[in-house]
């Protein structure tokens, strides 16, 4: 609990540590790309453009529906917004980011049931949505900051979030290499049973650290709803968006759980001892979390 409070403390400090920057760079703020990182291609350029085109259409439709809500308090427009935001979330989270690397790394490192993949993916996405709501609520609604300043400040929160993930990744790495605190060593139940009954302390911390990163799209939707005097609808839309993202991030979790399972089976057949393989996977998973969060931290640093 003390640790949770200190995390929350760091979060609030990061949020409010400085007055909004005087420099306003509308089109260059909130950029999510570290200059130094290599080209990382999850899929072909054609799919990227199709995804972008779909998001453009959804963005247009959501905007128009918000105007309907503002002008005529249309209920069907609210339902439409929730549906479109859900779809937007599914597509948007396919793009890089949103904690997928943490989820993938975690489930490569640790034996788990596929349901744990869903639980972790969903929790991260939902906390990310809540983080965006908290950020906009505090900075835009209560403190009345300018909208671009709110978006800018999200970068700082992102930086802190990646920093926390990197620390947790380093702890995971240290434990994996030294064999200390091995994933199942201090758990009461049978190793072969898998786990997922009770998230361990590290899981919880990892989930919260990853969830802190607010999604820029969620913030933009909230700010738009605020400008259209429909903040409650905006909050509901972000909840729906987060559910959509949860689908995608959970899918990555499930794929990692199953991938690990298949890998262990494969190596078991060629006669590699299970605990060696487990250790190797724990190292790989931790390294992935560490390196990706490090990259993201550098990226956020260049934008601070």
């Amino acid at each position: 609990m003390t640790r949770m409070l200190s995390v929350l403390g760091i979060f609030l400090f990061a949020l409010l540590s400085a007055a909004p920057a005087a420099r306003c760079d509308a089109l260059t703020s909130g950029r999510n790309t570290p200059e130094a990182s290599p080209t990382l291609v999850p899929f072909g350029g054609g799919l990227v453009m199709r995804l972008a085109a779909a998001q453009r259409k959804l963005n247009d439709s959501i905007s128009a529906a918000f105007r309907d809500v503002r002008d005529s308090h249309s209920r069907s427009a609210i339902v439409l917004i929730l549906g479109l935001a859900f779809l937007y979330g599914v597509l948007h989270a396919v793009g890089p980011g949103h904690g997928k690397a943490v989820v993938a790394g975690y489930f490569v490192a640790n034996r788990a049931r596929w349901t744990s993949g869903i639980a972790m993916g969903s929790l991260i996405s939902l906390i990310q949505g809540a983080s965006a709501i908290a950020l906009v609520g505090l900075l835009a609604v209560i403190l009345q900051w300018r909208q671009f300043d709110v978006l800018d400040r999200a970068t700082l929160v992102e930086f802190v979030s990646y920093g926390l993930i990197a620390v947790l990744g380093a702890v995971m790495f240290y434990r994996a290499v030294t064999g200390r605190g091995h994933a199942h060593a201090h758990e009461g139940h049978d190793v072969h049973d898998g786990h997922g009954h009770e998230p361990r302390a590290l899981d919880r911390r990892l989930i919260i650290a990853t969830g802190l990163t607010p999604c820029a799209s969620a913030i933009i939707i909230l700010l738009f709803s605020l400008a259209n005097e429909a903040l409650p609808v905006g909050i509901a839309a972000v909840a729906s968006l987060s559910l959509g993202m949860a689908i995608t991030v959970s899918a990555v979790g499930i794929a990692s759980v199953l991938g690990r399972h298949a890998l262990v089976g494969l190596f078991g057949r060629v006669g590699i001892r299970a605990h060696r393989l487990e250790q190797g996977l724990a190292v790989v998973g931790a390294l992935a979390i560490l390196s990706v969060s490090g990259l993201m931290m550098m990226g956020a640093w260049t934008r601070l």
Binding site: G30, T33, L40, V41, H92, P96, G97, K100, I220, A288
Partner: peptide, 19 residues
């Protein structure tokens, strides 16, 4: 192979936020 997979899943957001 795993690292490549993980990196691709986790690279920083590069999807459009402005249209």
């Amino acid at each position: 192979a795993l690292l490549a997979l993980l990196l691709s899943a986790g690279s920083a957001s590069a999807h459009p936020h402005v249209f």
